[in-house]
Computed example of a mutant assay.
Amino acid sequence: MSTTPAPTSPSTSVPAGPLPIRMLHDRLLVLPEVDAAERQSSAGLVIPATAVGPKRLAWARVVAAGEHVRQVSVGDRVLFDPDERAEVELGGEHYVLLRERDVHAVSEPEDTSGQTGLYL
């Protein structure tokens, strides 16, 4: 896999230039998405960020991948446990280092063809 960052899209903030780091083995360098400080329940109640609740996984964008990464590509949006991570700062940005096995899921692109499924 390449360590070159993915092209920037409007919904992500992936760095534009090459990173001063090369990932090894099955390691991933991801840029975590900013989590809103407050959430709102389905009933409309505002839940402050300090409220203790169930464990939440976090989304991030893969910006570099080691040569032995098989299931994830640079530019993929992945789901990981924010409690089990190692952080690093490169060029003023805060990144997270993960092993490929620490990724719980990879987001699939939305089907924007406008067609619905087959109904019988």
Rank of each mutant, 00 (worst) to 15 (best):
S2Q: 09
S2H: 04
T3L: 11
T3F: 14
A6Y: 04
S9P: 03
S9H: 14
T12I: 08
T12F: 04
V14T: 15
A16T: 13
G17H: 04
P18Q: 10
L19K: 06
R22A: 07
M23I: 02
H25V: 07
L29R: 03
V30Y: 07
L31N: 07
P32G: 00
E33C: 11
E33Y: 12
V34L: 11
A36H: 08
A37N: 07
E38L: 06
Q40D: 01
S42T: 14
G44Q: 05
I47A: 06
P48C: 02
A51F: 13
G53A: 10
K55P: 12
R56H: 12
A58Q: 15
A58I: 03
A58F: 08
W59N: 12
W59F: 12
R61F: 00
E67D: 14
Q71F: 07
S73D: 15
S73Q: 14
V74Q: 03
G75A: 03
D76F: 04
R77G: 01
V78G: 07
V78L: 05
L79S: 04
F80D: 03
P82A: 02
E84R: 05
A86G: 02
V88D: 01
G91P: 05
G92T: 01
E93G: 00
L98M: 02
R99Q: 06
V106S: 01
S107N: 11
S107T: 13
S107Q: 10
D111S: 05
Q115K: 13
L118Q: 13
Y119V: 14
